[in-house]
Design a protein around this nucleic acid. Structure first.
Lengths: 345, 345
DNA sequence: TATTAGCACTCTATATGAGCGAGTGCTAAC
DNA sequence: GTTAGCACTCGCTCATATAGAGTGCTAATA
């Protein structure tokens, strides 16, 4: 559909705008050596590109700016991966040099470095807690009628909840229950725990029947772990450095968005592998309509999938970010697997 | 030093500016019925007040604005407590109606309501974890050479850290150690734990001597709990609604401050009781020079002190905020004590 | 003597218009 | 098919004019 020259002009226009944040005009383009055409020729092609929806004008006599469709086309067809310099790769690898034992630590540091290398805001989604498996369960009584339930998962993560205990239960009842769980429910996914808990305990603790339901109810309620992803940011304020957000209204709505993403359902599609790019309104959120989010998934072992993302203006440096995320997600998969499955596994 | 009329004018000026955010002029003031003087008279007094440093002009022919010294005087001498309406008190009490068992929950909800009632940003400092006491200690092995240490405190809080175990230690070594701690170190403050740990275990686990130091070292490092206060916000973005922050630079530095307060040492003086007001530069931080922070302490039992605070523009409604914080801190002291010491204690 | 009216002055905010520059679209020439 | 040329449009900047709010000072007033 597009002529070669139009392709060239679209690409150079997007590249230039990404770099300068200024609408790009025909004269300016014709000065570049990659574009050996006169301004008039360029104008004609730009007019065509505008008609087809790839470019836009901010006002009648301004230069052109890529439209969302333009970015989409650029991203889908013109993304030549950029080489990441050795020093940058070294910087990424440095995350894993000091032996760290906690995934959270690794994730935090990754977020920081990613943001430093891109000058955009980075987001790391913590692993979905519900996919972890029970390794050890225990209950510690607090007062006469309340206790805290503690679950250690295979990944070393610890979840804890306070719940209330009906009066008729004694310490030894509780102990029996804990033993039961440790015998039978190790290896169960956290999100399955409440259901299984009921099945297992009902069969055995029958004698306390009347009150058992109360206990189970209260415990299940406490143990029901919402799908509340933990979100780590790196360079949260970086976005505000971009000229497109020099406006308090926009700044606020973005900040607000960031503080509340984890409460918004389905903003990240964790189930998709590889690198995804969502541009402007593709993010399905008003606050994000001037932003693009590039997400890369990494996996740990076989099933657990985590995500890292960079959020920047639609005018972000896609080439570079995609390449960086690629390196980073590979390294993360490798290193987190090591941590979780031990140096020998 | 100040004549009665000057006092009146200062007060009315501050009140008016708090309300309107506009510099207040003499003519405007003379229209109010509390001020039965002509503009000329008011001008004279205002000029005096300016000379003494209580008022400022934004430019030569503008109205006056309270200076930091002016606010300070106002706050120290003119703060008549405001009556809190019954419906508002009811709203505050609603926090404690549904029986909540976790202090964190209570604190979160308090933050939200406080911000809603004031239209400013609220900050709740979580209790200083280091002052909690050990209730139960346990260690769960993760891999061959790492394990997670879990401490439940008397308040129901759970701390956990991953640490590494030298190879020569067996499961039963670890078990002995855990038992030892649960026998001897229950009731110890969290911040004293590392020191005491060493004293207790050295005496008993002597046989494993060479490696014990490694284990203790790694465990102590993990258990050393920094003074890192947990900070909960309510209405984090409220501040950006204030006209004085309609500027991305300021907005950013405030957001940044909020995200990093807990890493800045000594910004809250937890040891002081009662209500404190810090105005502008009294906060000792550039980002806060247009803000005031009003802090109220509450206590739980006898020694633990927590803080709630409201952060708003220096032009904030001191009367109202002070009164609200007063009610809130009282209620919090009462209710949190109940939770922590149980319904019968 | 303390207060007030009056007046000249200052500064901001807002609107208006001119001039410049960058850019466009169209047409005619190459 | 490409380019040169030209008229036109729009935004930006700068200067100027004007209105309005407020001040400081002086002289009149109670």
């Amino acid at each position: 559909m597009l002529t070669n020259r139009q392709l060239l002009i679209l690409q150079v226009t997007v590249d230039d705008f990404i770099e300068t944040a200024q609408p790009v005009g025909s004269r300016q383009l014709s000065k570049k050596e990659e574009v050996p055409f006169s301004p008039a020729t360029i104008r004609n092609d730009m007019a065509d590109l505008e008609e087809m929806g790839y470019l836009e004008k901010t006002h009648t006599s301004s230069g052109r700016v890529p439209s969302q469709k333009g970015y989409r086309y650029y991203v889908d067809n013109m993304l030549t991966p950029q080489r990441i310099s050795k020093s940058e790769i070294k910087q990424i690898r440095s995350i894993f040099e000091e032996r760290m034992v906690e995934t959270e630590q690794v994730i935090r540091k990754s977020a920081a470095i990613l943001s430093e290398l891109t000058n955009y805001t980075s987001i790391m989604l913590g692993l979905d807690v519900r996919k972890h498996r029970v390794k050890r369960f225990s209950i510690v009584p607090l007062t006469d009628d309340s206790a805290v339930a503690i679950i250690v998962t295979d990944s070393g993560h610890v979840e804890n909840r306070v719940f209330s205990i009906p009066e008729s239960f004694t310490a030894s009842d509780i102990e029996r229950m804990v033993n039961l769980i440790n015998e039978r429910l190790v290896g169960v996914h956290l999100h399955e725990l409440p259901a299984k808990l009921e099945a297992v305990t009902l069969a055995v603790l029958r004698q306390n029947n009347g009150r058992l339901n109360d206990l189970l109810g209260s415990l299940n309620k406490a143990l029901t772990i919402e799908h509340e992803d933990k979100v780590y940011y790196g360079g949260k304020m970086q976005l505000l450095n971009q000229p497109e957000f020099n406006d308090v209204e926009k700044a606020r709505s973005i900040m607000y968005w960031m503080d509340h993403v984890n409460q918004m359902p389905g903003l990240f599609h964790l189930d998709q592998k590889g690198i995804q790019i969502r541009i402007g309104t593709e993010n399905n959120h008003l606050a994000m309509e001037d932003c693009s989010i590039i997400t890369a998934s990494y996996d740990i072992g076989e099933e657990q999938i985590g995500s890292i993302a960079i959020i920047g203006p639609t005018r972000m440096d896609y080439k570079r970010v995609v390449s960086l995320l690629d390196v980073m997600s590979g390294d993360l998969s490798r290193e987190l697997s090591k941590i979780l499955h031990g140096p020998h596994g």
